[in-house]
Design a protein around this nucleic acid. Structure first.
Lengths: 183, 183
DNA sequence: AAATTTATTACACAGATGTATAATAAAAAT
DNA sequence: ATTTTTATTATACATCTGTGTAATAAATTT
């Protein structure tokens, strides 16, 4: 499959439009390949030529989010390095990114979602947190478990935010993260 | 449905035996209701009279694990309260419980698993961590987000342990948790 | 603009899901 | 021990999944 081929691009665009619409209407687990294809006007056979199953399709969808998330977190680290300042709430861009992509996170964190998606976040945030921790704590030797601890702690706050239906503001979340980091 | 009814008990027992066997043979997502029923000698109709779908069935299975997990974590807190000692590695019983139930956790944390199962752990550990934090830090006012942070941090270590295929010993995990708690 | 490549379709099939209905058999209540 | 209750079964049906094959049409290459 040539991802540059106009036909492929068109197919995937139609598929994504259908997905976004269906996500507004119904639960993740209720979205069938059949329906996705009917709505996007492609045949099921075409879908299966691209993806093994629905989960693999969503993973591609999520990969796009991860790119953005990475950029927003690196923004924070880079700024700290350049100005050599201590971390303050308005330097954090993570929650801003999450809030802007609320709808997507709403389906990723839903109970019907697949654990593989969460793992994608866990793994990516670990990489980011690790390089950030290494830059800040040059003297300490870091284990993978300390990184996993910190990375998942942050994910815990996002998850809690999701459970509270994103009621707290981005600024409030930034402040809350700071208090936990200082404990 | 009367859960005490001998017929129900028999049905569920047969189902669980079939599940455990199938989990050894194949991936979680590959286990079909049809197969589960064929192996346990019950009809598919009976299965659906008890559970909405496979996920709901697993949730019941996991609930049993959560009971044990809760007890092992409370053991730690209670001992601390009684002896009024500072937390030391050999007081932690959490990882011991996880290790003993390795097989179960292996399927809960697999990529094919459902995020709902993880959420069950998240929610339960939050409750436990909260009461533990409140007992220790009587002066501080706790937000749900601080609790979520700590609870998920611990889950992060378990998750990392799973990814490393439980190579580290229970004692090592206890020590590793201590270092992260002190950061 | 014509030839070539290849993504998409149309159609078909075995097996799975989820649900409905009446018949049956096993347990509980009397 | 008999009656009553109800969990389980047998059977059937519409819909969905995942895959195979040959025909078609759209894009790329020449």
């Amino acid at each position: 499959m040539n991802e540059q081929d106009l036909r492929v691009i068109k197919t995937k665009k139609n598929l994504q439009l259908a997905l976004i619409q269906l996500l507004k209407e119904k639960d993740l687990e209720k979205i069938k390949v059949t329906e996705l294809c009917r709505l996007s006007g492609i045949t099921r056979r075409t879908f299966y030529l691209h993806y093994e199953n629905v989960r693999k399709y969503f993973e591609e969808f999520i990969e796009q989010l991860l790119e953005e998330l990475e950029q927003s977190m690196e923004k924070t680290t880079k700024y700290r390095m350049m100005t050599n300042q201590q971390l303050v709430p308005n330097m954090i861009h993570l929650f801003e990114h999450v809030y802007l992509n609320k709808e997507s996170y709403q389906f990723i964190f839903s109970g019907n979602s697949n654990f593989a998606y969460y793992q994608m976040f866990f793994k990516r945030i670990k990489v980011i947190v690790k390089s950030s921790m290494e830059l800040m704590d040059l003297d300490h030797e870091l284990t993978d478990f300390q990184v996993a601890y910190q990375a998942n702690a942050i994910l815990g706050m996002i998850l809690e935010w999701y459970f509270e239906n994103f009621q707290k503001s981005v600024e409030e979340m930034n402040r809350l993260l700071m208090t936990s980091l200082r404990i």
